[in-house]
Design a protein around this nucleic acid. Structure first.
Lengths: 156, 156
DNA sequence: AATGAAAGACTTCCTTC
DNA sequence: GAAGGAAGTCTTTCATT
């Protein structure tokens, strides 16, 4: 990923679009003190260069009945390439797993999972996660409250 | 948060808009087999009812030089209302903290932090986090790899 | 690189079914 | 609720500076 040079106008564009991707190009141009066409050209360049990876609608999980937000730490028996690859593949298939990171330290994975209720979590853990080859240990922690969420990346 | 009744068309709308919020209303209408006006009316209703909370541009942290992604667990000495409130307020002021959850168990907080380098993480931990009143313990774990990230909520 | 103007496309509202 | 049509606005491109 080439680190593109971003000037202060690009930074302001990114800051605004993270907060509100529905800004029209006219509004955005005004916010960053540019006329519409150079503003659009910059946005397109940021998209083309992968600085902006995509645009998404943030959906409230509770409105879908997804009331349980859990972080799950998974430890593997060993970290062979095959075990890691098969674990990551299995995780890719599970829609409840919204985020998954390979972590330093005990070479764990950290998952963030959203499910309707605790029963669904149990089912996920017992029927699916624990059956993935090489999984040694699974620990769940519940998020009780979202203090801060989807905060925009600091763009300076 | 009133759990609005979502039919299968709403579900399809949400599914598409999570994947690509830049779909035009015309494209979206076609995808969900509706004509543009009822499609727009549904999207507006989903926004009004808070099912869609906002639209955001996802920005690649590496392109901003933000190469270190860390999860930080914070344990407090005690969980008095004042301590919790002041901690949450302090976290709200720190732009490097993208997400923060109050967790079950040892009544910890779990933070996700993005910074340019390890030095910045040390500075954040020592100069800021550890100085917040009531903070007893801070543990950092580095994300080595993003296996899955910003996956859309499963909408059924 | 930025500006300004023009063509085409999209959004949005209103009426009808 | 959904469809169709009309008006206004925005996007996008291009010639100009």
């Amino acid at each position: 990923m080439a680190t593109r040079k971003l000037d202060s106008i690009d930074a302001r564009i990114l800051s605004h679009l993270q907060r509100n991707a529905k800004l029209t190009n006219l509004e955005l141009a005004e916010l960053v003190n540019l006329s519409p066409s150079p503003c659009l050209a910059r946005v397109k360049a940021l998209e083309r260069d992968g600085v902006i990876s995509r645009y998404t609608a943030l959906v409230n999980p509770a409105s879908l009945g997804l009331n349980v937000n859990v972080f799950i730490r998974v430890r593997l028996e060993k970290q062979s390439r095959e075990i890691l690859a098969s674990f990551e593949h299995a995780i890719g298939l599970r829609e409840e797993v919204l985020d998954c990171y390979l972590m330093s330290g005990e070479a764990d994975y950290l998952l963030r999972v959203v499910v309707p209720d605790v029963a669904s979590l149990e089912k996920l853990t017992i029927d699916h996660l624990s059956r993935i080859p090489g999984v040694a240990n699974i620990q769940s922690s519940f998020a009780l409250k979202e203090v801060k969420i989807h905060s925009p990346l600091p763009v300076r």
